[in-house]
Design a protein around this nucleic acid. Structure first.
Lengths: 154, 154
DNA sequence: ATAAATCCCCCTTTTTCACTCGGGATTTAG
DNA sequence: CTAAATCCCGAGTGAAAAAGGGGGATTTAT
């Protein structure tokens, strides 16, 4: 596994927050929904906030809102903000690290791998993930967020 | 970096050995050519041997030969033999590890990433890497392994 | 016999992961 | 005003993996 749980949790948290736009979503809800330690999630949220993906609303009834439109948040950005470069080998980031850049037979292989993976992650924006989430949840969404009338849950 | 140096060294060692087929190549030569600790390389070679990628020839004038045709050795096999699964997230290997397989909005993203990267690595066989290496080395190859006639250099 | 090689097992050091712990600051509800 | 709900911050921790090192036994060409 080379994507840390931190990055996975962060991305899932953004989906959870995106799902309830434009309401402020407290981390407790996210932690409960995803089965994650709330305190750990706080640290992740702090990083997401510093990177501008979310904005905090403090105090009771507070929580987090998205910092920019869902279509402008790619999975690549999120993951790299939380765990640094996703390059398969360091010499793609730092050509001096191994010394023989340009003369290595495997260099282009790693470049291709990097491009392939990066392509998928750039293409996957938050709105797509949220849409997929809505499909998965289906009707259950209605029970979580009743549209102001109490005529749903018996 | 999520491909260990062990896997990188192992792959490069196979290229080095493949380059001199069908001669037995001692690890010292590989270590020198690649700038790797010979002792560390021994450990890697042991794993490659147990996986059948190379066969050892013991004693003086010994070394390692390829265990099967270069076209039948993919980078994916080599890397996975040396460092286990390359899946970006554990739930692709072990669906029980996270609990909510099938109901996770990011599951298909990681599957796509996995497929993209795996596709590149499966497609890259040792003969392609060796060919690329020959291109890089160019004429220098002649100095290392003269094909019995002196009519090539100059 | 000797030198060149592979083979084998155990050991250390450093770093990273995935959290936990213990608070403090800010805002709203009552 | 007070209590509750939130976010905010930094330190610490236990386990695992990464990247080797040490030392020696075994096999074989010469």
């Amino acid at each position: 596994m080379w994507v840390s749980t931190k990055a996975q949790y962060g991305l899932r948290a953004l989906v959870e927050i995106g799902l309830r736009q434009p309401e402020a979503v407290p981390l407790k809800d996210v932690a409960d929904a995803q089965g994650i330690s709330q305190h750990y999630l706080e640290q992740i949220a702090a990083q997401l906030r510093r990177s501008g993906f979310i904005r905090s609303v403090r105090g009771a009834k507070g929580g987090y809102k998205l910092g920019r439109p869902m279509a402008q948040i790619s999975a690549l950005e999120v993951v790299e903000a939380l765990e640094g470069s996703l390059a398969p080998v360091t010499c793609l980031d730092d050509p001096q690290s191994c010394g023989h850049t340009g003369s290595c037979s495997t260099e282009s292989l790693w470049k291709k791998v990097d491009d392939a993976m990066r392509g998928v992650l750039v293409d996957t924006t938050l709105d797509k993930l949220v849409a997929e989430r809505r499909v998965i949840e289906g009707r259950k969404l209605i029970q979580i967020e009743p549209p102001r009338a109490g005529s749903l849950g018996v």
